[in-house]
Simulated assay, not measured.
Amino acid sequence: MTPDEISTYEETLGVLGDIDHRVVERVLREAGWSPCGAGDWAVALRAPDGRAAARISPFDLVAPYTVALYREAAHTRQVPRLFAHRRLVGGGDLQIMEWLEPVDADEAAGFHRALAAREPEVAELADVVRRVHERGRRDQPWFAPKLDDNPDNIMRNADGRLVAADLFGADGPRLYAAVVDDPHLVVTTIPEPERRFMTDIPLTNTGPWPPEVRAAMHESLTTADTTHQA
């Protein structure tokens, strides 16, 4: 993909202005992007030419650190090529990156082991991963303490190289438990504009919340916001 083609993504995002995850998905689908995957935090669409993918999340606290990793470790050629990034209204996130293919679970596990051991072939990447992860842990109280070593996070790009994606995550179980059990902590650590859609994440892997649970979360946060603003 040429620099001009990459800049087109940035220009498109600039024209769209301030939008949320629902508008992004609708606009891309209307432009011919097709669904190609979904997880707990995001859905993915593939570009019409097949060379790029869009990761769209309604709410993602740690995505800026993932983007920082992709940019700061780009020289290693062991992270996905990032074409465009935009924070979305309500705490969501959009990343447009090169298309990646899955790899064998054993091969992926081997890459994760090499990264954890800082083996020579991934040493530079490991250093950037550690640096950005430590930064996230300092900045963000809901940052997961460990890297996500899911084999699905190791993929292969069109050049045949293995790359590491989505190594960082939020401590979801603790965060969403706190929404009900300690909402004051949530509203004082995550501004309302950055968590407006926090109950809209797909939860494709673990299953969606029952409607009554989602309603309880909304009520809990609304009450805590009112108390905090009083």
Score class of each variant (00 low, 15 high):
residue 48 P to W: 03
residue 88 L to K: 01
residue 205 N to W: 11
residue 141 P to D: 08
residue 211 P to A: 14
residue 88 L to V: 02
residue 215 A to S: 03
residue 43 V to H: 09
residue 22 R to V: 04
residue 216 A to R: 15
residue 149 D to P: 06
residue 189 T to I: 04
residue 34 S to K: 14
residue 140 Q to G: 09
residue 197 F to V: 10
residue 83 F to P: 00
residue 204 T to A: 12
residue 8 T to C: 00
residue 10 E to H: 09
residue 148 D to T: 09
residue 31 A to D: 09
residue 18 D to Q: 15
residue 179 V to T: 12
residue 179 V to K: 06
residue 200 D to Y: 07
residue 14 G to C: 04
residue 204 T to H: 12
residue 197 F to C: 10
residue 36 C to P: 01
residue 9 Y to T: 01
residue 222 T to K: 11
residue 27 V to F: 05
residue 93 D to W: 10
residue 183 P to M: 00
residue 179 V to C: 09
residue 189 T to M: 02
residue 180 V to T: 15
residue 3 P to Q: 07
residue 91 G to L: 04
residue 72 E to H: 09
residue 17 G to V: 00
residue 64 P to F: 03
residue 153 N to S: 06
residue 73 A to E: 13
residue 130 R to L: 12
residue 16 L to N: 00
residue 119 E to C: 09
residue 83 F to I: 01
residue 13 L to E: 03
residue 7 S to I: 09
residue 20 D to P: 03
residue 50 G to L: 04
residue 70 Y to L: 10
residue 113 R to I: 08
residue 22 R to S: 04
residue 192 E to R: 14
residue 39 G to D: 14
residue 131 R to H: 08
residue 84 A to Y: 03
residue 173 P to T: 06
residue 196 R to S: 10
residue 25 E to D: 07
residue 118 R to L: 12
residue 127 D to A: 15
residue 101 E to G: 10
residue 202 P to T: 03
residue 107 E to P: 07
residue 119 E to V: 08
residue 34 S to V: 13
residue 161 R to N: 13
residue 35 P to T: 05
residue 211 P to E: 15
residue 191 P to E: 02
residue 13 L to C: 03
residue 129 V to F: 11
residue 100 L to E: 06
residue 181 D to S: 12
residue 123 A to H: 09
residue 91 G to V: 07
residue 199 T to L: 10
residue 225 D to S: 06
residue 177 A to V: 13
residue 6 I to D: 11
residue 162 L to G: 02
residue 16 L to E: 00
residue 212 E to C: 11
residue 70 Y to K: 10
residue 21 H to F: 10
residue 171 D to C: 05
residue 165 A to Q: 12
residue 91 G to A: 07
residue 63 A to V: 13
residue 104 D to N: 06
residue 14 G to F: 02
residue 210 P to T: 11
residue 222 T to I: 11
residue 126 A to H: 03
residue 31 A to V: 01
residue 134 E to P: 06
residue 38 A to Q: 15
residue 102 P to Q: 12
residue 132 V to P: 00
residue 193 P to R: 02
residue 104 D to V: 05
residue 44 A to F: 09
residue 41 W to L: 14
residue 46 R to D: 11
residue 20 D to I: 01
residue 183 P to E: 04
residue 194 E to F: 08
residue 66 T to S: 14
residue 4 D to R: 15
residue 163 V to L: 11
residue 162 L to K: 00
residue 68 A to W: 09
residue 121 E to F: 11
residue 67 V to E: 15
residue 62 V to N: 02
residue 26 R to F: 06
residue 13 L to H: 01
residue 204 T to R: 11
residue 192 E to V: 14
residue 165 A to K: 11
residue 151 P to M: 05
residue 99 W to F: 14
residue 60 D to F: 03
residue 142 W to F: 07
residue 205 N to R: 13
residue 6 I to Q: 12
residue 132 V to T: 00
residue 42 A to L: 08
residue 65 Y to P: 04
residue 96 I to G: 01
residue 164 A to H: 06
residue 163 V to T: 15
residue 45 L to G: 04
residue 191 P to Q: 00
residue 105 A to S: 13
residue 86 R to G: 07
residue 22 R to D: 02
residue 219 E to Q: 12
residue 89 V to N: 09
residue 2 T to I: 07
residue 221 L to T: 05
residue 41 W to I: 15
residue 227 T to E: 14
residue 124 E to Q: 13
residue 162 L to M: 04
residue 43 V to I: 15
residue 112 H to Y: 03
residue 118 R to W: 11
residue 104 D to Y: 01
residue 91 G to H: 07
residue 92 G to E: 03
residue 185 L to E: 10
residue 140 Q to N: 13
residue 55 R to S: 10
residue 144 A to V: 10
